[in-house]
Amino acid sequence: MTRLSGCLDVVAAVIWRDGRFLAVRRPPGKAMAGMWEFPGGKVEAGETPRAALARELREELGIFPSRLVFWKETSHAYPELRVRLLFFHVWDFPGEPAALEGQELAWLTPDQARAYPFLDADVDIVGELAGIAGPPSFVSGD
Rank of each mutant, 00 (worst) to 15 (best):
I132W: 15
W107G: 11
P39N: 14
V139A: 12
G95K: 03
D18S: 11
G102S: 04
S5C: 05
Q112G: 05
G127F: 06
F138W: 15
G41E: 10
E37Y: 00
G41Q: 14
P49V: 08
W71G: 02
V11W: 12
E44G: 10
E73S: 01
I15C: 13
G41M: 14
I15D: 04
P136Y: 08
G95E: 08
Q103V: 05
V126S: 09
R58N: 08
S137P: 02
S137Q: 13
V10G: 05
P27L: 02
E80L: 15
T48D: 03
G40A: 09
H89T: 02
R50E: 15
I63W: 05
E128L: 14
E128D: 14
R26E: 04
R3I: 10
G62M: 02
D124Q: 14
E73H: 15
P79Q: 11
I132L: 14
P79A: 08
L119D: 00
D111V: 15
G34N: 14
L4S: 08
F70S: 00
G41K: 08
A52I: 09
Q112Y: 13
A54T: 12
L81F: 07
E47W: 11
F88Y: 15
I15E: 03
K42C: 11
P27K: 02
F87M: 07
G19E: 02
A45I: 10
S140K: 12
P49L: 05
A121I: 01
A133M: 15
E101S: 07
S5K: 07
D142C: 14
A113P: 03
A23E: 04
P27A: 07
G29S: 01
D124C: 13
L22R: 00
D18H: 12
T109Y: 08
W16A: 01
H76C: 09
V11I: 15
W71S: 00
D9M: 08
F138M: 12
V123W: 06
W91Q: 13
L85I: 09
G46W: 12
Y116T: 01
D9T: 11
P136D: 07
Q103W: 12
G46A: 14
E44K: 06
G127Q: 13
A106F: 01
G134M: 07
A54N: 01
E128F: 13
E56G: 02
W36M: 05
D124M: 10
P97W: 11
V24W: 05
E59P: 03
W16R: 00
P79K: 10
G41T: 12
G62Y: 10
L85C: 03
R67W: 11
G127V: 10
R55A: 04
L22K: 10
E73T: 12
R84Y: 08
Y116G: 02
S75G: 00
